[in-house]
Design a protein around this nucleic acid. Sequence first.
RNA 1: GGGUCGUUAGCUCAAUUGGCAGAGCAACGGACUCUUAAUCCGUCGGUUGCAGGUUCGAGUCCUGCACGACCCA
Length: 490
Amino acid sequence: MKESLIQARLEKLKGLREKGIDPYPARFSRSHTIGEVSAHFSFLKEGEQSGEQVTVAGRLVALRRMGRASFLDLRDGSGKIQVHASAGRLGEERYQELCSSDIGDFIGVRGDVFRTKMGELTVEVAEWSLLSKALRPLPEKWHGLKDIELRYRHRSLDLVANQAVREAFVRRSRMVSAMHRFLDARGFLEVETPMMQPIAGGATARPFVTHHNALDIDLYLRVAPELYLKRLVIGGLERVYELGKSFRNEGVSTEHNPEFTILEIYEAYSDYEGMMSLVEELVVTSAQAAVGSTRITYQENEIDLSPPWQRIGLVQAVEEATGLSLDGVTESDIRKQARKKGIELPEFSHGKLIEHLFERFVEPGLIQPTIVKDYPMDISPLAKRKQGTEGLVERFELFIGGVEIANAFTELNDPIDQRARFEDQERLREAGDDEAQRMDEDFLFALEHGMPPTGGIGIGIDRLAMLFTDSPSIRDVILFPTLRAREVRR
RNA sequence: GGGUCGUUAGCUCAAUUGGCAGAGCAACGGACUCUUAAUCCGUCGGUUGCAGGUUCGAGUCCUGCACGACCCA
């Protein structure tokens, strides 16, 4: 029974306290991290003594007792090292105390560095101290923690037990910091805009609602930072970005988590063509930082991220994939053609139909990086009309590995057109589309004072992290994915 | 929301047709001064996710529920 495992450790804890040993001391000074010791003493040959002492600390992850001498493995954030302890060196009592440590305890040791006859770099313990007593056993040392529900609910254990998980989150962090450096170096200003908004705008999605007690108003968790970032461009902050959480009140899947991380970038005097080049460079730079290469493997597919990426028109791509002819054709024409080909279509409006056909027939095949451009206007209420076309806007989405990674526009800066687009969205809402965007008078007020020609892009950070870590599920790149609440384990 | 699959010891997994719930690791006790998944001997550890039902007998079959995974919308 688990209680007895904990009980045994509580007994040990009591025994330590009775001996005057603090099982949770406040601090411990180490001379080196374990990684530093490994690097510094790499020259030692088999059986060779360095004659130098180090003080290291870490979690006890293995204990191999052989009577009056033992080998222990300690792990810290930089690596793992073997420690040798003997009763002869430590004295009987301290040796026995060390050997009665449990896997999972944090321990600090001081001692000489040497290499064993078998070639393992080892610290010979001259002195040691307990730094933190673990009361619960760690997951099994060899198989680790596999139960996917336990891994998500108890990520700390997942990280302790599974090295690949630690590495994935390190990669994600490297990717994000490379993005900051990239944008900072190009003169983009990092800003923070409200996550709680009176109107959740900037994307087609259902929001979470919350309530501010003192003001007695409902606020929405943002579905995108877009409309606030554009206000900044209007105000003269010509290059801005925000990298942070947004929230969409939708189902959970391998590609969706209710809270997710998005990078939005706005650049005055750029446009969607400019954003295409920007995202190519940004993805290459962050791939180099995270993976060390622009060639990656994602779910058995070899992907070459080096630019230039293929650029295709949305409508043409759908026409080629389906054999339908869509250019300048009405919704009922599309339905008529589809029926002839035996393609069933849901009750969507014109733009949504094309998007639906795209998602069904084109998107899964977009393994190599592909920019899909020129979207129907009715599903893109914040993007500028494309000159010389009927009902298309300057918008593109980026697909890699069959997954949507980014969405970008030449931003709509005509306030009269923007108002008309919001009105269209309101009509859709009244017709029952609860994902339709809201009329945002405050945003229009700002826009009516003039926004320069601007390009903007939103990049799904979690999705990109999936690609860079070869993860099949978004939950593998989110430290604490959203799960249904469950009774706390005792 | 629908479909399929899963839930057995702290962890990783077994259990034949419905017939005594098991192993490895961990824990506990013992032997062992170059091990590294240490080894060897012994011991402990179970409300088989929860609630019902069928049956002489249920981990196994049936119903409902909870949680999760995958697919679809």
